[in-house]
C-alpha cells in the first residue's frame, strides 16, 4: 500500500518542507526522518527553524510546500497517535485552571463534547501526574508552579493522550536540574517501551547523553541520522558557522 518502503519504521517523515513568515524564509526544503522507538533531537542555532519545523509538521503554522507523514499517513489520519508539547512560555499561566485540569485537557479529544469526566479519568490523570512527580500538587492553580513544575504538567498532559509519538518544543528550556532529570528518565522509559520522542533541543552538551538520533538544522537540513554519524564537529561547524568547533569537545568533556 505504501510505496515509500524507505519510510517504514519512521514515526515522522518530513519531505521538502518550506516555511516562510511573510517573505522571510524560515525553513528551506527540509527532508528528515525520525525513526520509531528512538529519541531524536532537533538542534541548530537561534532562528534555525527548529520550532518552526515541529509546528509546520503539526499543522500549527502553514507550510508553503512539503508534507509531514506520521507513521506513513497524513496528520489528520494519525492524530490520536501524536502528542505535542508546546513551549512553556506560549500560554498564560494565570489562566483559571488547576494542575489536574490541564492534564484532563489531554483527554478532551477522546472524551468528545458529551462524555463527562468520571473517577476513572481522574485517576488516570493522577497516574500521569505521578509519572512526572506532580501528583501531590494536583489541585494547585497552575500559576503558582515553578517553571520546571509547569513543564512537567505539560508532559503529563501529553502522557494522558496515550500517543505513540511525542513532539516536544524545547522541553528543557528554563527548567531546573531535577525536572530535566525527571523528564529525560521518563522519555527514555517511554522510548524503551516502543514510543518515539522528537525534541527541539538547545543544549549541545547533552545531545550525546540524551538522544540517539539528531537532525541538525539551519534553515536547511545540515545532517540527519544517528548521533554517532551526524553529530560531528564538521556538521556543527556548518550549522553554527564555526563558532562552536572549539567549544563542542570541551562541552562534551564536562558531561
Amino acid at each position: 500500500m505504501n510505496v515509500h518502503n524507505t519510510d517504514a519504521g519512521a514515526a515522522l517523515t518530513v519531505r521538502g518542507m518550506s516555511v516562510a513568515y511573510g517573505d522571510k524564509p524560515a525553513l528551506s526544503s527540509v527532508d528528515a526522518i525520525f525513526k520509531q522507538g528512538r529519541m531524536s533531537a532537533v538542534v541548530g542555532p537561534n532562528g534555525a527553524g527548529k520550532s518552526t519545523m515541529l509546528k509546520a509538521a503539526m499543522g500549527i503554522i502553514p507550510a508553503i510546500s512539503g508534507e509531514a507523514l506520521f507513521f506513513g499517513r497524513p496528520l489528520a489520519e494519525a492524530r490520536s497517535r501524536v502528542a505535542y508539547v508546546p513551549q512553556r512560555a506560549s500560554v498564560d499561566w494565570d489562566f483559571p485552571a488547576t494542575v489536574i485540569d490541564v492534564v484532563m485537557m489531554g483527554l478532551y479529544r477522546s472524551l468528545g463534547p458529551f462524555r463527562l469526566i468520571g473517577r476513572s479519568q481522574r485517576e488516570f490523570a493522577l497516574d500521569c501526574l505521578e509519572d512526572v512527580d506532580m501528583a501531590s500538587l494536583a489541585n494547585r492553580q497552575i500559576g503558582q508552579l515553578s517553571g520546571g513544575q509547569q513543564q512537567r504538567v505539560f508532559i503529563a498532559r501529553a502522557l494522558a493522550q496515550k500517543a505513540d509519538l511525542l513532539m516536544l518544543d524545547e522541553p528543557f528550556a528554563g527548567v531546573d536540574a531535577a525536572t530535566e532529570k525527571t523528564i529525560i528518565t521518563l522519555l527514555k522509559k517511554l522510548v524503551a517501551e516502543g514510543g518515539t520522542a522528537v525534541a527541539v533541543h538547545h543544549d549541545l552538551s547533552t545531545v550525546t547523553a540524551y538522544f540517539e538520533d539528531v537532525l541538525i538544522l539551519n534553515v536547511r537540513r545540515i545532517a540527519n541520522g544517528t548521533v554517532a554519524k551526524a553529530f560531528t564537529d564538521a556538521n556543527l561547524a556548518e550549522a553554527y558557522g564555526g563558532r562552536l568547533t572549539q567549544a563542542t569537545p570541551v562541552l562534551q568533556k564536562t558531561v
Partner: peptide, 17 residues
Amino acid sequence: RQLTLVCFDETFARTSG
C-alpha cells in the same frame, strides 16, 4: 472543552484537531 482549550493553549488545541 473546545472553548477552554482554545482559550488556554491555542497551539495545543490545534494539534488536538
